[in-house]
Amino acid sequence: MSENMNLKLKIWRQKNAGDKGRFVEYDMENVSPDESFLEMMDELNEKLTHDNLEPVEFDSDCREGICGTCGLVVNGEAHGPLRATTMCQVHMREFKGMTKLTVEPWRTKAFPVLKDLVVDRGALDKIQQAGGYISINTGNAPDAHAIQVPKEASDLAMDAAACIGCGACVAACPNASASLFTAAKISQFALLPQGGPERKRRAAQMVTQMDIEGFGDCSNLGECEAACPKEISISNIARMKREFVGAMLG
């Protein structure tokens, strides 16, 4: 059992998309190292409500690292300090010895702030809509074993498919590129025989949509991979670039 912590929190508050926003400081005392970061934020909100103040709005849902809803920048790091972990799974013990934490939303033009720490990530859905699917209607499928997929390909596809669409890759990238997100989806389908027929079209359309949504270019800095809670490999971006060039050359 380690000791409880006292913290000064510097949190981004912004009334709505039109508001300029500012940092506000709050004190949190006697925080258990065994509670999660979001549970600590819950406690802060309970306190604010009792003080007749508006709680700090932040997104979260499953609180077990799979839905991709949560996401904060803590002390400059997307999803906080723990590698391969979403914000909801970071526990206060990770901040042992620290007294001050700065909490910000994902910051990028393509994800406008809606309120406080809540952002609009609809642009990622638009990329998916541009081609992140195999065009097959319900009821048309052949028997599952009619399609054999080598285990290696299947495992690699699963590595890419593990993306939770949280947007940390964008938040961590100095160019605010959504390349890792887009590449993960393109790779999943490019690696599987089922994805073959639409392979070129998909790569061309999804990459184009990424640009339309206002995301930046990839300059191979690797910040996305480091911030990714699901450890999606940057090699997917290389694959996406090959797929895209292949599509452009016909």
Binding site: Y133, I136, G139, N140, A144, H145, Q148, S154, D155, Q194
Partner: peptide, 18 residues
């Protein structure tokens, strides 16, 4: 069948089957 056709990456054996 539907999920496999959609590209859901189910776990597979070395023979390529589910």
């Amino acid at each position: 069948d539907q999920a496999v056709a959609q590209g859901v990456p189910f776990a597979r054996e070395y023979g390529g089957l589910l």
